[in-house]
Design a protein around this nucleic acid. Structure first.
Lengths: 107, 107
DNA sequence: TTGTTATATTGCAATATTACGATTATACTG
DNA sequence: CAGTATAATCGTAATATTGCAATATAACAA
């Protein structure tokens, strides 16, 4: 099928998976790293940097944005995309909690 | 297409995405948490716990296993799956590094 | 307003993922 | 060895993701 039986899983478990999905594509990791490095980061720069087409980058940006990790302000004709640091730290906290609470008992 | 242009991205970026993919499905998160909680954790228990079919669970276990996160020993007829803690901690370290090195400069 | 540049959206093709029934392999038991 | 229980594999269907060309929209400049 391809559709995950979402109702099966607890809310926090679904949240973790949703967060992880954002990071589950190299282009999105690359975009996040690039955005965080640059002082000013307009979409066209990202396109040049990553090597994917403008629509594809835009699509990945949308995924990142939907996760709440993006802030954008117009800088002239371009948009300066920036990392939503607060949200990013929330994600990190979720991961840390997941790692902390997942420790093997057996073997 | 669906195929990611892998050659575009740096090795460490691909690694991050690959790791994240393991966590990018609620069933796998649930499996990992369940495995870590139980003293002894046979596959059939996981099937009962998660509510997906045996082949589906087996498929997810394979994904987790390919990532190196699984240890399994036969316990009678069943297999006791356990978390490879060392590998799991490696993953955590990778995430920590990613989060640490990705900090916004602009906005 | 018209033209220009930058980004978003749409539509579509290719591939990947998820899920399960049917079957096969594996390890034990009698 | 034959029988049983458990897990893996195969085949296949449904859905999701990825990627891009074409097009639309948005913001500015003249």
């Amino acid at each position: 099928m391809g559709a995950s039986k979402l109702d099966l899983h607890a809310e926090d478990i679904k949240t973790m998976a949703t967060i992880a999905k954002v990071f589950a594509h190299p282009a999105r990791i690359a975009i996040l790293q690039y955005i965080s490095k640059q002082e000013s980061c307009i979409c066209n720069d990202i396109v040049d940097e990553i090597g994917l087409s403008q629509p594809t980058i835009s699509q990945h940006l949308q995924v990142i944005n939907k996760a709440g990790l993006l802030k954008g302000n117009y800088k002239g004709k371009s948009i300066c995309y920036c990392l939503n640091v607060e949200r990013f730290q929330e994600f990190q906290a979720q991961f840390n909690h997941f790692f902390k609470t997942t420790t093997a008992k057996c073997c």
